[in-house]
Design a protein around this nucleic acid. Structure first.
Length: 742
DNA sequence: CGTACGCTTATTTTT
DNA sequence: TAAGCGTACG
């Protein structure tokens, strides 16, 4: 054990034996090290048995990391331990107590896409106007309610819209129950209710878990917090690690307030701050500290390092997004020539759309790069099709899966037949598969044929091993044949083979070798366990771990990703691009309460990814939504003290470059005209002459600066950067603008 | 049943 | 700009 190698606060956190604790762990302060060392320390000193520990994370990646680090410190098999994600652990509980949870033994998990499809189907079936009540809104409504722990009857409604939404929520729940499917937030809510409503189950787990450790506590939502509270019995020690300054997921329901609540309700005096940073050099850290100090209501924490000041933060301003990309490219080449590996360099951006220009520059120059994000393995169309067949084999009543593949590959079952079938199913409140018997005629016979194929498949498959079963399904369903005849089906075929391979790997990892996939198997550690079949286990695995997104590893490539995706990672050199007002902070964030502060935390996360060198870059113009947009530097840049910054491009007088920021309409698109003619130009509308750089006042938006002008006469538009609401494009003929002197 | 065209829209994302 | 979606047509 390496307790001696820890710094003071780290050691205090690891060896805490009394009460609950909140660890405020700054970026790069050894958070994962503390969590894993503590688990190992507790076990090694016989203060806890491996079975009495529950450690919970948000991502599969973090949970695997934790397992392997604990496994490396101790000679035990960590697989039996309750180390996992919130969703994974709740799923485990629900499988073990499916009857008490009110779920069928073979319940399946809906991912976000499946969920949306189900809602759309529901809206159609109930004749709900999708323009008035969009499926997306309903999905958000439902998930948000569940994250707050609310069932439909408990939802407060005071307007017709939310009343309708609540009705949809109710219909949705009934449909999920009929199909035996469970969406992501439902995994958590059901697990919570299981503990609430079943005293023996609750007591069992409360007595079992003596130590509950939570990673990234600042990202928990109210539901997750409630689950933790319920799971903690009298003698349980709750140990939460998090950083309120790195809370960047409020938009998906995370509640930073949980940290303050936890301090008040549990940790009380036991708050340990990890403030020594082992990642970044001084200037970078000081710059980040100064920035985040502008946020209010922080729990408070200042990072320091003994690594020395290092280099200044480099700030660069370029005239266009293309120029910015070119500059990043040049700088990357220079760094690489100086001996820095490409994989130690990252280009970060606020939104995915920004990667295009950057990729283009890197690609044209032949610089290897890797973009993170995008479609993951289990989300691919062909994989989802194959999985849908497997799900039908497991549960023929799952309408989502039924609809996905009933006519794929095409077997003459069109929209008409489906409509009749759906009507029957609705009328008798049965699943689609059950309704097949009620449909007569030609449509009925093709449908019957489909159902009988699934049943045959089921008989064959359940005696095979998992990977053999997957193989069989791909063949019998006609998927393989279909993609073989498709022009560009080669890659999809490869992916299907990869699915068979994934099943093989799963067999080995889960000790399923030689076991028919329809057989039930028991995990020794879970005494209350309902056994799960190999097939169910694999389907759950596919739903809960959507698979890695990163392809072709190995190559020394520059890493491109959003700032969100970079959380938890570190790089020698970081390029933080597009640091412009409206983009970062994003203009939409201005309308959300606390939005600006969340954006600032995002900036903080981005800056603290850099170890040795941090570049911050921005552009004066950018192609956005097919139009050139003119941008001002992000307000966050002003929050970084000058003495930590080195300007690579001269700070241009605003009026100077704003003068070049005039757009004239040319053909279909907009082009920036040459600075000279632009400065000379101005647009006269209604007796007022508007010029770029001018100050204006709008009755609703307040004061702003004209960034760009386009169009003529009645079509004339101005792009105006308002201090309070960001950049807007207004029609000069319509908007009531007053020119103000400044 | 599949394709083609036109309309709309446009953060961040894990499970 | 460009991607995704829904409708209309062959």
């Amino acid at each position: 054990m390496t307790v001696e190698q820890l710094n003071d606060p780290q050691r205090r956190a690891v060896t805490l034996t009394e009460g609950h604790a909140l660890v405020l762990a700054g970026a790069g302060s050894g958070k994962t090290k503390v969590l894993t060392t503590r688990i190992a320390w507790l076990i090694q000193n016989r203060l806890a048995s491996p079975l009495s520990i529950l450690a919970v994370t948000f991502t599969n990646k973090a949970s695997k990391e934790m397992q392997s680090r604990v496994g490396a410190m101790l000679p035990i098999d960590t697989r039996g331990m309750w180390i996992g994600t919130f969703h994974g652990l709740c799923h485990r509980m629900l499988r073990a107590h499916s009857r008490d949870a009110g779920l069928p033994q073979t319940f399946q998990i809906l991912d976000t896409t499946d969920q949306l499809a189900l809602i759309k189907r529901l809206l159609k079936a109930n004749g709900i106007d999708e323009d008035k009540y969009p499926a997306r809104d309903a999905q958000r409504f439902i998930n948000r309610c569940k994250e707050e722990g609310l069932r439909a009857p408990a939802v407060q409604v005071d307007d017709p819209f939310s009343r309708r939404m609540r009705d949809i929520y109710e219909l949705y729940e009934a449909q999920c129950q009929r199909e035996g499917v469970v969406d992501f937030p439902e995994l958590l809510l059901r697990a919570l209710e299981l503990l609430q409503n079943h005293e023996p189950v609750r007591t069992h787990y409360q007595q079992r878990f003596r130590h509950i450790l939570v990673d990234e506590f600042q990202d928990t939502n109210p539901l997750q917090y409630a689950w933790l509270q319920l799971l903690a019995g009298d003698g349980t020690c709750l140990f939460a690690v998090g950083d309120d300054d790195q809370s960047i997921y409020a938009f998906r329901g995370a509640n930073v307030g949980n940290m303050a609540d936890f301090e008040r309700d549990y940790a009380r005096g036991n708050v340990i701050r990890l403030e020594q940073n082992y990642r970044s050099h001084g200037h970078i850290l000081d710059a980040a500290n100064a920035l985040i100090a502008n946020n209010t209501g922080r729990l408070g924490k200042t990072l320091w390092t003994d690594a020395g000041q290092g280099e200044l933060v480099r700030l660069c301003e370029q005239p266009s997004d293309h120029a910015e990309a070119q500059w990043v490219l040049d700088e990357i080449r220079a760094l690489h020539d100086d001996g820095l590996s490409r994989q130690d360099m990252a280009i970060l951006y606020r939104s995915n759309a920004q990667s295009r220009v950057l990729e283009h520059a890197l690609f044209s120059a032949g610089v290897p790069y890797r973009v993170y994000g995008g479609l993951r393995f289990f989300e691919r169309q062909e994989i989802k099709h194959a999985l849908a067949y497997l799900r039908l084999v497991s549960r023929i009543d799952e309408d989502s899966a039924f609809l996905r593949v009933v006519n794929f590959p095409a077997r003459g079952i069109g929209a008409r037949s489906i409509e009749t079938l759906t009507d029957q199913a609705n009328a008798y409140q049965t699943s689609l598969a059950q309704a097949v018997a009620r449909v007569s005629g030609k449509a009925g016979s093709s449908l019957a044929q489909f159902v009988s194929m699934i049943q045959t498949l089921r008989d064959q498959v359940l005696t095979l091993s998992l990977s053999e079963a997957v193989e069989q399904v791909i063949d019998t369903s006609g998927l393989r044949e279909h993609y073989r005849s498709q022009r560009d089906g080669a890659e999809r075929l490869e992916n299907l083979d990869e699915l068979v391979n994934a099943a093989k790997v799963f067999e080995l990892e889960e000790d399923l070798a030689g076991l028919p996939c329809g057989e039930r198997r028991v995990r020794a550690q879970d005494e209350l366990s309902d056994p799960m079949t190999g097939l169910e286990a694999f389907l759950s695995h596919a739903a809960l771990e959507s698979g890695d997104t990163q392809a072709q590893a190995g190559q020394d490539a520059v890493q491109l990703m959003t700032i969100h995706a970079a959380k938890g990672l570190e790089f020698d050199a970081v390029f933080l691009t597009g640091v412009e007002d409206g983009l970062f902070p994003h203009e939409n964030s201005m309308y959300e309460p606390g939005g600006l502060e969340e954006e600032r935390r995002l900036m903080y996360v981005a800056m603290t990814r850099a170890k040795k060198r941090l570049y911050v870059s921005l552009s004066q113009s950018r192609m956005l939504h097919g139009q050139t947009r003119y941008c001002l530097p992000s307000r966050f840049i002003e929050e970084i003290p000058e003495d930590h910054v080195k300007r690579l491009s001269a700070k241009p007088a605003i009026d100077d470059w704003i003068g070049s920021a005039v757009a004239t309409r040319m053909g279909g698109g907009y082009r920036a005209s040459s600075p000279k003619s632009a400065v000379a130009s101005g647009i006269e509308v209604g007796g007022q002459t508007f010029r770029v750089g001018q100050g204006v006042r709008h009755p609703r938006f307040g004061e702003g600066t004209i960034l760009g002008l386009s169009g003529l006469g009645l079509d004339a538009q101005a792009q105006i950067h308002f201090l309070d609401v960001g950049t807007k494009t207004l029609a000069l003929g319509v908007a009531k603008l007053e020119i103000i002197a400044r």
